[in-house]
Nucleic acid binder design. Structure first.
Lengths: 328, 328
DNA sequence: CTGAAAGCGCTTACAG
DNA sequence: CTGAAAGCGCTTACAG
């Protein structure tokens, strides 16, 4: 059935075979209204028979739609580091967007640069933007040309809808579990200071501690495993009697576990350790944690951006559930 | 400096400011030869001043270049599973391609479907294809329209250049290390049977065993951690006296470690375990392994595809180095 | 080395 | 509801 020549089939071929004009064909293909059932039928059949696939370049040239979704990752460092989380986000976005023949790009966004989104806003190849690890300052300066086609995984704003896990609920569940299982000197290892998206987790931890009449104690981490080792060392120095550590990231929690065990401190016998995210190796490491449906979040964010909305969609909050394993 | 209107700057704006024709402007911008130094100068300056960014949709419409690179992952299952390896491949490709404003797509390729690449070959949005986990059968049937813009991470063919880690060297180093450290009953956990890209590792292991007068013993795994647990169980049943396990994948090796320890078999005291890939948690788990520069490989593959070569580039082989840790 | 012109494949007012 | 026509922003023979 595929034509003997290599010339790709265009909308003209479909129109000819369907016996209607190119305009009508285009209308059917783009799903516009006011089409006779008969025309719709003929065009649909012709397109299928010819295995027609629209040329997005041509389409986006006229619609000014752009051909790629850019994942813009705010980073304090000059070079972007891709951890497991980001890899999953990008892959999910690339899979979802492929269905619409839109590609995905990945780039860092300097935390300090002046108006780092301006470049993306004026790039005609950009269909939309998914912001990762964004800050209030960046959200405040979002280029207005991006409004309607930008979402944030993390915190949002009036103009930028957000998609995120329910950090507060997940953190509350973990903190309560630690308290309920008898822990009293519970330290939290937070995310980096400049990153606001885990703030709800810190607030939740704080509230649970206060409700239980327990001290609030935090150490700053940066989502990496080494930062967990360092945080554990710091925490042990400042609060030698600690009996639990709750890190807002599994990699960090595993670093905490490693540091404790290297000092022959038993986990969970002496100190309970919990993480957040339920990464692949959390199960392997018997780490108690809370789920973080990264794929679902990235898919939702991508779909929002692909849709280029007229009215701002609501913020999306994905549930987080406690996963009890051996470490806490 | 950015224009007061929101209209994006086009090549016409650049031409006008440079005082030359659109044709000349285009020639300078695409790097074609036979341009007067003066014209080149004026156009370059005008483009920079106006912050011109080319509209890839328009360009690829005329060049028929396509706007996205598709990562096509051969999979026996109907749904594509994204592991850490694939996440890193996709992210690296998305980062490299972003520089040329080309997007990345991710999709599965059925192991059984008839001519699964035909669809990609006739999709005008496809700039090129990076094949992952490919098989000889798929390589044999590569659509000729894809030749010159398809590469394989793994095995290659006459028409499809390959980019891969030096599986043979890495596996040889690990097998030798096991033998040299006194292990004599060494089992290999391989990749899935249908996947040819780790065959050089199996061959290397086989050669080292034979050279040392040791028995060749293999169990099939599938690159997952659970398959490592299962493989360890199988291996212990078949060869109760085994004293080393070499898995061609770290996740699998960690599964082996977990299974052994759950039976109170000491690692490395009773059984040495080695993996391959040096994933993030290999260091954490003290796993002896061999490096696998996934990012470098994915970047090279992407750049090859982005370049759309005329003469077939050579196969690229990236080195793998032994990483000695505690497990072996 | 340069410019005028044609054309890539689509969508969308416009007129009917 | 439909079709003829214009135009999206670019590249590239073609003629000079």
């Amino acid at each position: 059935l595929s034509s003997s020549t290599d010339r790709p089939v265009t909308i003209n071929d479909v129109a000819r075979r369907a016996g209607v004009s190119r305009s009508t064909t285009s209308r059917v293909l783009t799903g516009s209204s006011r089409i006779s059932p008969q025309a719709r039928d003929q065009v649909t059949r012709a397109a299928a028979e010819l295995r027609y696939v629209p040329n997005m370049a041509a389409r986006s040239l006229v619609t000014r739609g752009g051909t790629r979704v850019v994942i813009a990752v705010v980073t304090p460092r000059p070079t972007l580091v891709v951890d497991e989380y980001l890899g999953r986000v990008v892959s999910a976005a690339a899979r979802v967007s492929a269905a619409q023949r839109i590609g995905v790009g990945l780039q860092g966004l300097s935390l300090t640069g002046s108006d780092p989104l301006a470049e993306l806003a004026q790039d005609p190849t950009v269909h939309g933007v998914v912001l990762v690890n964004t800050t209030e300052s960046i959200l405040r300066n979002v280029d207005r040309r991006l409004v309607g086609r930008i979402v944030s995984i993390g915190i949002g704003s009036r103009l930028v809808p957000s998609v995120d896990v329910d950090n507060a609920a997940g953190a509350t569940a973990i903190a309560r579990h630690l308290v309920d299982s008898g822990r009293r000197r519970i330290v939290m290892v937070t995310g980096p200071r400049w990153l606001p998206c885990t703030r709800p987790a810190v607030d939740a931890y704080t509230r649970v501690m206060q409700d239980a009449g327990l001290p609030v104690r935090t150490v700053v981490g940066d989502f990496t495993e080494p930062s967990g080792r360092a945080a554990a060392a710091t925490a042990l120095r400042r609060w030698p009697g600690l009996d639990a550590v709750f890190a807002v990231c599994d990699a960090t929690a595993l670093g905490v576990v490693a540091e404790l065990r290297s000092r022959t401190i038993g986990v969970p016998a002496d100190v309970a350790v919990a993480g957040f995210d339920d990464i692949a190796f959390a199960e392997f490491s018997k780490l108690t944690t809370a789920t973080h449906p990264v794929e679902a979040i990235a898919e939702a964010a991508s779909e929002l951006v692909l849709a280029s909305w007229q009215v701002r969609p609501p913020n999306l909050v994905f549930p987080s559930e406690l996963v009890l394993r051996e470490s806490a």
